[in-house]
Amino acid sequence: MIRHLLSAGDLSLDDATLVLDTADEMARLTEGRAVKKLPTLRGRTVVNLFFEDSTRTRTSFELAAKRLSADVVNFSAKGSSLSKGESLKDTALTLEAMGADGVVVRHSASGAPYRLATSGWINACVVNAGDGTHEHPTQALLDAFTMRRHLGELAGKRIVIVGDVLHSRVARSNVLLLATLGAKVTLVAPPTLLPKGVDHWPCGVSYDLDDALAGADAVMMLRVQSERMSAAFFPSAREYSRRYGLDSRRQSLMPPEALVLHPGPMNRGMEITAEVADSARSVIVEQVTNGVYVRMAVLYLMLAGTNTTEEA
């Protein structure tokens, strides 16, 4: 297993499968039993270092760590190091001095977890909990885990990811992980919301949602922030949802058993209608539950065993 989880692309097929299988066991070990807590990470300290607000991701990591009996410290440093005093480096040195074994970091700057992991400021394992517009590997893992529970092995499965790919760390991580797992991914977005060079990514690209939905095994809707509108990425919210929103008519274009996913938080009425979000094929709430299992698996695999620096 890798020492830091920075990018979904760092996971080999074996690693990714190990995480998903372990998450399966975590679900099995905690679902419907008297004591949901496992003693595995007793005495280990996990720091949730959140430079950006995200109650759901932080809570999910916190619960995962606590279920494994780790000591959890929430270190909330709202605003970047630029705007508020302490630098990333000083924060890292503080955490190191406190004896953190694992640091779960969320940051508005792409690559901030790389700096933490590679700069020599800390020895702790670093888990990327979302960095800027770069990646969010545990989200991709929980998405894959959720889809795998319903669809079986993902090799050959057709998965459509729709929305603001340009600014989406969820999309980047999903494309990399799903490619590793052998799924066929199609990105659908207006051309303005696709990054340059997307044609080199291990996936297909389409501007036509109706077309892409036929034959899909799952569709993942990405959150579209309304401020993109003022930056002229698209003319209006109404036009966006008409062309790229998932409504009942579009859902009916998919095979009846196809899944609907969304990383949350949703803009109901924008990228997804309430009807679809609450439909029987929507696994959006389940994604949240599964997030805890996947994060338990990641924390277990990264923190339970020998730390490479202790070995040396």
Binding site: G111, D131, P195
Partner: peptide
Amino acid sequence: AQMNEGELSGRLGLRG
């Protein structure tokens, strides 16, 4: 803007 706009900026999530 943070780096050359190209395939890599798209992958790294850095403004091109």
